[in-house]
Design a protein around this nucleic acid. Structure first.
Lengths: 337, 337
DNA sequence: CTTGGCACTCGGGAACACAGAGTGCCAGAG
DNA sequence: CTCTGGCACTCTGTGTTCCCGAGTGCCAAG
């Protein structure tokens, strides 16, 4: 059905079209790639490829352009991920190493990825749900007001101001803090609700109203922040490319964080790279856009995902290489700090 | 030099051009605005206005378009800020009131502003330098590792992990914390360095190395975070407008946070609205772009700035009204929480 | 199965004409 | 001195036509 030469032709079409952004014709193909056959033969192959929906022509008598299906085949079977150069890898390493806190790690990662791929990069913050409690802090702010600070093992910090039903002395707060930390230390965030259930019983009765308030805010924080946070960069690359089609859609997707998170997808093991090509992705505004995403994490747990948005007409091997490399390094950095 | 009628003509030109985005001719002007004079008269006035650089024609025999200088005059003397409708004001209030922490306040503000103006909105986080210390917390994480958390009165939280030169017991940390908070409570961030200088002397000698390490990290945090943080939203509005010119520049400016912060400007009292029109602003990529900015803060102190980027051809009265209103409400919210 | 040849198609650029909007200027009326 | 109507002029943008060239599909021969 699709012999080797047809596949080679398809690969050549994809590569040429990606680099020139112009429909590619049989003659040009025969010239630039030495396939050892004449244009006429290539034309026949192209006809077959078009028949099966891998390529298409914008108008009669123009060259061929890969379809989404064509890109899919290319990505799955005709290309391999291109590793970064040593210089690039070193650059990543030193650039990420300088980050002092989670915010900065994410910030630098997303910029790095944008610069490396010359596309729009997206990084999801390490998921709250999959990390665990490092420390809970209760800070008295005023008579009846405290700040609750939750620090996770991924370095994420959530804070919330809590108004208490009654004044509470500092030493009693200290006690509450001690009890809470004893219970929660190292506890996975998803287990917090159960774990915390018996805390009031361990406290003197007079502290229970305050504790109840604080606990309810704590739980609320976990629920609300279940919706994950993302960062993006590289939108200027959109304008640079002749990618005027789809620009609108991409910008809209970026604004709609919910959509974006869905797009990053939840499939895949830690080092799998997910590629969604054009119409494969569920959001209608991204017709001409592809998404290359990967999970990152420390150890064997996936903490969150990151990726890149670009025109379907992108250099998949290189982009996938960059995404994979960055995901790995971020994982290392997070594990190390 | 510029009599009332010429000013009226200029105003009419600006308004028409803003709403139609097409060069406006003398006849159309005479029709749409009842200036009580004939097109010929208007032509004479237009010639005078062009002579003085307030308007220009894209090519001979097209209508006139305001120049940056023309917009400037319009903003300064020919228009007044248009207040928001009651409905809009209520919407702002309820939308902002739901925010639970600083991050969310900023997030909501920037989205609100983008939606209200249908342009790109930018909000600077409340400046660290102008706020003061609410609380300093030192959280033991491991033997020789603590997390330093700095909470400001604006609700901003900075955290940093510190590796200590030697192990230190929890009660000694508690003491250090107490001393630090006693010194720094309410202290303006800019005074922290002096205030903190004599802390080591107040501590037992064996704690001083650890304290020195922690203090140096604290000071470092203040310096590093001197560079302010910003959030933006509404980039999708760029694509919607026929604002394809300048799009590139705006996106680039958004990526370059430093530039953007400079653009928001540092001038102006709390409720002054700064307008920078096209070439007036110092960044070359923003030729066709105007910036409407205002400071916000609680009480009489300006904490930071926020604003909007859009085409020079924007509806200044409405935009300025929205920026002013949002700035005020954010100030109130921050003061109240 | 491959190849060269050939007729056909169609998009895009160049040349051209034309209508319409807008201008500048001038002479005459308030 | 200012306003107005009239008029000739100058453009741009659009529509038309034409033609070139790239590229195709098909066919017959190797």
């Amino acid at each position: 059905m699709l012999d080797d030469r047809k596949l080679a032709v398809l690969r050549a079409i994809v590569e040429d079209y990606v680099s020139t952004n112009e429909p590619v014709g049989s003659k040009a193909l025969a010239d630039r790639h030495n396939l050892g056959v004449s244009p006429a033969t290539i034309r026949n192959d192209m006809a077959a490829l078009e028949e099966q929906g891998y390529i298409t022509q914008p108008h009669t008598s123009a060259g061929r352009v890969p379809t989404d299906k064509g890109y899919r085949l290319f990505v799955d079977r005709l290309s391999q991920i291109k590793p970064l150069s040593g210089a690039e890898r070193r650059a990543i390493e030193t650039f990420l190493a300088g980050a002092v806190d989670l915010d900065e790690i994410v910030m630098r990662t997303v910029r790095l990825l944008a610069q490396l791929t010359r596309q729009v990069a997206v990084v999801q913050y390490p998921s709250l749900t999959r990390s665990s409690v490092q420390h809970v802090e209760i800070v008295p702010l005023a008579e009846r007001r405290v700040m609750l600070v939750l620090i996770t093992n991924t370095g994420r910090v959530e804070q919330r101001v809590v108004d208490l039903p009654e004044a509470i002395a500092d030493d009693r707060i200290a006690n509450l803090r001690a009890v809470l930390n004893a219970c929660l230390d190292g506890c996975g965030l998803s287990q917090v609700p159960e774990t915390v259930a018996d805390v009031p019983e361990r406290l003197p009765p007079e502290d229970r109203p305050a504790a109840a308030t604080i606990l309810s805010v704590l739980l609320e924080t976990l629920v609300e922040r279940h919706e994950e946070k993302i960062a993006f960069a590289g939108t200027a690359n959109l304008a640079a490319a002749d990618f005027s089609v789809g620009l609108r859609g991409v910008l809209e997707a970026l604004e709609e964080q919910v959509v974006l998170i869905r797009l990053l997808g939840e499939t895949g093991g830690l080092s799998d790279i997910t590629v969604r090509i054009g119409s494969e992705n569920p959001y209608s505004g991204l017709r001409g856009t592809s998404i290359v995403a990967a999970g990152y994490g420390s150890g064997d747990r996936e903490l969150a995902r990151l990726g890149v948005l670009g025109p379907t007409r992108m250099d998949y091997p290189v982009t996938m290489g960059a995404v994979r490399a960055v995901a790995r390094y971020v994982g290392q950095i997070l594990a190390g700090s």
